[in-house]
Amino acid sequence: MAPHREPHPDGPDGTPDSRALVGFDLDFSAHEMLRRAQVLAALGPDWDPVEVMRGEEEAYDLLYSGLDPEQQRVYEELVAAGVLPRREGGGRAAA
Rank of each mutant, 00 (worst) to 15 (best):
D25V: 15
A41V: 00
F24N: 08
G11Y: 06
A20M: 13
E32M: 13
V22P: 01
G23H: 15
Q71W: 02
P9A: 09
E76G: 00
D25L: 14
V83E: 10
Y75A: 02
A37E: 12
L43V: 00
G91Q: 05
L67E: 02
M33T: 13
A94H: 12
F24W: 15
A42S: 12
Y75M: 02
A42W: 04
F28V: 10
A81L: 11
A59M: 11
L78A: 09
D10Q: 14
P69I: 02
R73V: 00
A59D: 07
G90A: 12
R19H: 14
A93N: 10
D27K: 06
A59E: 11
D17G: 14
L63M: 13
L63Y: 13
R87M: 13
D48M: 02
E51F: 01
L40W: 07
V39Y: 04
A20S: 14
L43A: 06
A93V: 01
G55D: 09
Q71L: 07
W47A: 11
R73T: 07
P49H: 03
V79G: 02
V83P: 00
L78Y: 05
L62P: 00
E32R: 13
G89Y: 05
F24V: 06
E88F: 06
L26E: 12
G66W: 03
L84S: 01
V39M: 07
E77K: 07
A93H: 13
E70H: 08
P85M: 01
P12L: 12
D10V: 01
Q71D: 10
R73M: 04
L63R: 15
A2F: 08
Y75S: 02
L34Q: 12
R36S: 07
L62N: 12
D68M: 02
A81W: 05
G55C: 04
V74L: 15
G55L: 10
E76V: 01
P69F: 04
D25S: 15
Q38C: 05
D61G: 14
R35N: 04
V52Q: 12
A94D: 12
P12V: 09
D13L: 14
A81G: 03
G66H: 06
E58W: 08
G89F: 03
P85K: 09
G90L: 12
V74W: 05
A80V: 00
R87C: 00
L62F: 09
E77Y: 02
L40A: 07
L40Y: 09
E77D: 11
A81S: 08
S18Q: 15
Q38L: 13
W47F: 15
M1V: 09
G90F: 12
S29N: 11
